[in-house]
Amino acid sequence: MGSHRRTAPSSGPDRSAVVALGLLSAAATALGAAPAAAAPPDDTRAADVDRLYEEAERATEAYNAADERADGLRRQISAAQDGIARKQQRVNAMRESLGSLAGAQYRSGGLEPALALLLSDDPEDYLAKASVLDRITVHQVGELRKLRSALRSLAQDRVEAAGKFGALDRSRKAAAAHKRTVESKLAEARRLLDSLPAGERAAWDRAGRSARTDLTGPGAAAASGRAAAAVAAARSALGKPYVWGANGPSGFDCSGLTQWSYAQAGVALPRTSQAQRYAGRQVPLSEARPGDLVLYRSDASHVGMYAGNGQVIHAPYPGAPVRYDPVGMMPVSSVTRV
């Protein structure tokens, strides 16, 4: 007997109909045509969304690194150009001075010394002029040497500036390539997320916020005054939108939020999450205190700020504002105390 109770069959034609239906049902089952059970949630699409956001975040941090390098190169180029302009002014002044000396020498020293002495009305005056001309010549040689040195230095500065311009161009191209990658990944993730039924989308969002880690309680103090100020700044950003490549104050990506928050406390953090990992000393997750930076994934491609009570404040992903989430929402790779 089967596991389901069945109604007793009736007699006559009704019984024949029931038997026929039973045979048809058995045949359909044998052919694999039995009514299907309700389809389970599409975990594959949800996993693809996770993967795409993760890849987009890595590309975002790579973009941030290239953009930060470009900013640094622009500052170096500006300083180099100022230095080149100052050296060029010095070279021009030296050339003008040497031109004046050469003209004076030509006007005063065009005759052979012996003949000039014979023709001179005042030998004493001649000797005084000759002495000045000697000094001018020695000075002129020294100035020429200084000019040659200045020209060599100027040429070297120009070569170095040209190299920086080349590096800046490469950094700009790298940033543009990473930008295209980010935009492509985010667009695909958004398309997949929009294709999920509302219930599955809500379940996907809850899945990343359900992990709990028992750490220090709500009364735990920050490790320093600047850490406390950074946490206060991060809290003031709650509800601001995630904007990739942004570091405030109206929008943030993950490392942009932590960089901006610590800037409000007077602390300059690097731009990327990978660099922020080494912006202080490492502490165990079990000893995390408010203001510590919590790095996620083995490549530290995501960062949040520990806020106490087992939670971090972070900028999660496009469409999700700056918010609290459990510190164990994804694999923690390290904790940095700034």
Rank of each mutant, 00 (worst) to 15 (best):
G225R: 08
S149C: 07
C254I: 10
Q89W: 03
Q88G: 10
M329P: 01
D50S: 12
A175F: 03
S333L: 08
G225N: 11
A320P: 01
T7G: 10
A268N: 15
L186P: 00
Q311E: 13
A79H: 07
P35G: 04
R5H: 15
Y106N: 09
D82S: 14
A30T: 08
V327M: 07
Q282C: 00
V132I: 15
K146R: 15
A187P: 02
F165T: 12
P35C: 04
R212W: 03
T258H: 02
R281L: 10
D214G: 09
A80R: 06
A80L: 11
S153C: 06
Y126G: 02
L31T: 11
R289L: 15
A161I: 01
S236V: 07
L257T: 03
H4V: 12
A8G: 08
A116L: 12
P9K: 13
V327N: 04
K129V: 09
A233H: 04
R69C: 00
A37N: 10
Y126I: 03
T216I: 07
S171V: 01
A150R: 07
A177K: 10
A104G: 12
Y126D: 04
L257W: 00
E183Y: 03
A265L: 05
A268C: 08
D325Y: 02
P290A: 05
N64E: 13
L269K: 00
L111M: 15
R74F: 04
N64W: 00
G22Y: 06
L119D: 14
